[in-house]
């Protein structure tokens, strides 16, 4: 009796897993960016990394320039991949890169920056991950292009060459 319910259930579960893995296999490994346009940035108050100062979202994004909010963590391996792009974007004077350090230890985060250099003009500290939730982020890394208090573009996953060029073309 038990077998009669259990066996079909297990078979269906395994078929489901097979299906998922099969589809996953045929997907490219390149992260697909998701674009969200003209959504307002969330309002929040956040601690600045390596200091006790607190800032509000309005203070952070107040100037009339483009901002790039990058959610990162030292334990996140894809963050290492996208780091060179951020370093390159840093050279763009019309863009300011704000880092949101996600669920990280200060020591590890500092090591990460010392090792790979610091692309950020300002780093915010999100030790419990709540600010990232405010932004609707799914994980790390994630990047938001912001202008005039609005999210112009949202990138889920690490940046790649195409996305990098796209940002360069927007921020001229």
């Amino acid at each position: 009796m038990k077998t009669k319910i259990l066996l079909p259930f297990i078979i269906v579960s395994f078929l489901f897993i097979f299906f998922i893995l099969y589809v996953g296999l045929n997907r490219s490994n390149i992260y697909i960016p998701e674009t969200v346009t003209n959504e307002k940035i969330p309002t929040f108050k956040v601690k600045v990394f390596n200091s006790e100062k607190k800032l509000t979202s309005i203070e952070i994004f107040e100037n009339d320039i483009y901002y790039l909010l990058n959610i990162w963590a030292s334990w996140c391996i894809p963050c290492r991949d996208e780091h060179p792009y951020l370093m390159e974007l840093k050279k763009n004077k019309k863009l300011e890169i704000v880092g949101l350090n996600y669920k990280d230890k200060v020591k590890n985060a500092n090591n990460f920056l010392n090792e790979l250099n610091n692309p950020y003009t300002l780093i915010l500290s999100d030790t419990d991950g709540t600010i990232a939730i405010e932004w609707g982020a799914y994980g790390v890394p994630e990047t938001f292009l912001i202008y005039n208090g609005k999210i112009i573009k949202k990138i889920i996953g690490p940046m790649n060459n195409n996305l990098f060029k796209e940002i360069e073309s927007v921020v001229k």
Binding site: I20, I32, E34, A73, W75, Y138
Partner: peptide, 17 residues
């Protein structure tokens, strides 16, 4: 991460925490 990607097209990275 594979399941989430296939079902919802979301990418996540699961780390040591």
């Amino acid at each position: 991460p594979i399941f989430l990607d296939v079902l919802t097209s979301q990418k996540i990275s699961v780390g040591p925490p």
